[in-house]
Design a protein around this nucleic acid. Structure first.
Length: 478
RNA sequence: CGGGAUUUAGCACAGCUUGGUAGUGCACUCGCUUUGGGAGCGAGGGGUCGUGAGUUCGAAUCUCACAGUCCCGACCA
């Protein structure tokens, strides 16, 4: 029998209850806290720091690709919001609306932005006049509000942090290229920073963003077999431009409507990172987003010389550019080991009397627990190497999991079997909405994307038996 | 918006069946001893028991209503 103390300090095992494991990790690793309003969470310093790492990578990539940051108002007058019909219909059910200012009723109520397409369009209609004003490549970092019915930390919130890029282009081709280019940036983020392999593709019409002509997405597979949409890019054509009266004089002197894109990723990426890599001891953070990359723990801290030596070790790592924490609190070493494992710190460096005597430290890797003795003179170089090793081990592990959870599906029986196992089902689809709906109705799985990497699993649609047109990845989704 | 669970100290919970002056562990404060995988002993501080009404001499406990939160399903980054 476990007693309560142990229960209090540990987290639920993944195999016992994956959802509870997730919530435990979010709270106990101090990533977030609940607030007094449902669906609105507090991003605590350790969780926010992960977001800052993601931001810093993306912001650099956005600027390298010619984008500029702006900031738009957080409220949209209802009258403005209603200008593009499909868009309104998509978002109306989840808008939070303010209609009192001070003590006066507001005649044109203010919608707290659920996304900012209309704000950008309204602004663009004023500043775009000539082909010389294009392209406009704007991005903003902000939060948006969607009145969601059920919420989970990072995965689905009433408010979440994100970036939204909104661009305008002279030609359709240029806009389409932009949407695909930014999807690549997101994919790079997964591979190089988060150690998450994304499946890239195009959304079916049913799953498209309200108002978009094409939606592309990156999808990740979670350990419970469900897929998580981690980011989307959209090609809008010039529908919004027409609705908002955005025109420019072309090189030929004609008045034309520009072509538009938007794209975004959110703090949901934190949720994906937690789930993809975490284990029963807590978080396992990819080195490039870990707020603390190296934690230095003195052992037998009361023995003379231990604290100064640990401080020196920490400083050496700091000077070499690592994000370092020295924990010289008077907690026991064992407590600290568990604490920083729960927080997913990639490398733990132990410094004790025996190490000091031998001029060495102990370095332990969080992802697989492997410990080794390293001479102090080599520890910084070794640390750099190990962070790279950890990243690629984590990425490879995630790739292997993904590869083992993709099933070819040729008929409905196989689909049911595959979905009970969890993961993606590769289905040859005829292209009819009715067949897509049928699969959802029977299995609760939805079309995640039409992958760019197409292949032929079979010749016919498993629902209607007609000739198949496209390979589609289906899965149960968050 | 349906189904289930839950609400008592900062956190995790017990107490409720059978009403009688608020408990345990962790955390926190102080002291001493400890320190290579969540240390030990001693002494302390901290609670209008989710809200409102009712029953009763007396309610955390019984009754009714309401609210919050979490989990699972229908809609979404």
């Amino acid at each position: 029998m476990e007693n309560k103390q142990i229960k209090n300090e540990s987290i639920t095992r993944q195999e016992d209850d994956f959802a509870q494991w997730y919530t435990d990790v979010c709270k106990k690793a101090e990533l977030m806290d609940y607030s007094s309003v449902k669906g609105f969470i507090i991003y605590r310093p350790y969780g926010y720091a992960i977001w800052e790492q993601i931001q810093s990578y993306l912001d650099k990539r956005f600027k390298e690709t010619g984008h500029e940051n702006v900031y738009m108002p957080m409220v949209i007058p209802e009258s403005l919001f209603k200008k593009e019909k499909e868009h309104v219909e998509g978002f109306a059910p989840e808008c939070l609306i303010a209609d009192i200012g001070g003590e006066e009723r507001i005649d044109d109520p203010l919608i707290i932005r659920p996304t900012s397409e209309v704000l950008f369009c309204d602004h663009y209609s004023k500043i775009i006049k000539s082909y010389r004003d294009l392209p406009k490549l704007y991005n903003q970092w902000c939060s948006v509000v969607r009145w969601e019915k059920t919420t989970r930390p990072f995965l689905r919130g009433a408010e979440f942090l994100w970036q939204e890029g909104h661009t305008m282009h002279e030609s359709e081709e240029e806009a389409r290229t932009e949407a695909l280019k930014m999807l690549e940036v997101y994919d790079d983020l997964g591979r190089d920073i988060l150690a998450i392999p994304f499946s890239k593709g195009r959304k079916t019409d049913k799953e498209k963003f309200s108002g978009a002509l094409e939606t592309y997405s990156i999808e990740a597979l979670m350990p419970d077999g469900k897929a998580l949409q981690c980011g989307t890019t959209h090609y809008f054509g010039n529908g919004f431009a027409k609705a908002f009266g955005i025109t420019f004089q072309s090189r030929e002197g004609k008045l034309e409507n520009p072509y538009q894109t938007s794209w975004g990723v959110s703090t949901r990426l934190i949720g994906a990172t937690i789930m993809v890599h975490g284990d029963d001891n807590g978080l396992v953070l990819p080195p490039y987003v870990a707020p603390i990359q190296v934690v230095v723990i003195p052992v037998a801290a009361n023995k003379p010389g231990v604290i100064p030596a640990a401080r020196e070790v920490a400083n050496k790592f700091k000077e070499a550019g690592f994000r370092v924490k020295l924990d010289d609190s008077d907690k026991s070493p064992g407590w600290k080991f568990s604490e920083y494992e729960m927080k997913g710190v990639p490398l733990r460096v132990e410094v004790g009397p025996r190490d000091i005597e031998k001029g060495q430290v102990v370095i332990a890797k969080r992802n697989d627990g492997v410990k080794q003795f390293v001479p102090m003179t080599e520890m910084v170089e070794k640390g750099k190497e190990l962070l790279k090793v950890i990243h690629s081990e984590m990425y490879e592990k995630a790739c292997k999991y993904l590869a083992n959870h993709v099933n070819d599906v040729k008929d409905m029986d196989e689909l049911n079997i595959a979905l009970n196992k969890g993961g993606y089902s590769k289905i040859m689809w005829c292209g009819d909405r009715a067949c897509e709906d049928k699969i959802k109705e029977l299995t609760n799985a939805t079309a995640r994307c039409i992958p760019f990497n197409q292949m032929e699993v079979s010749g016919v649609c498993p629902v209607c038996g007609k000739k198949a047109k496209k390979l589609v990845l289906f899965a149960k989704a968050y």
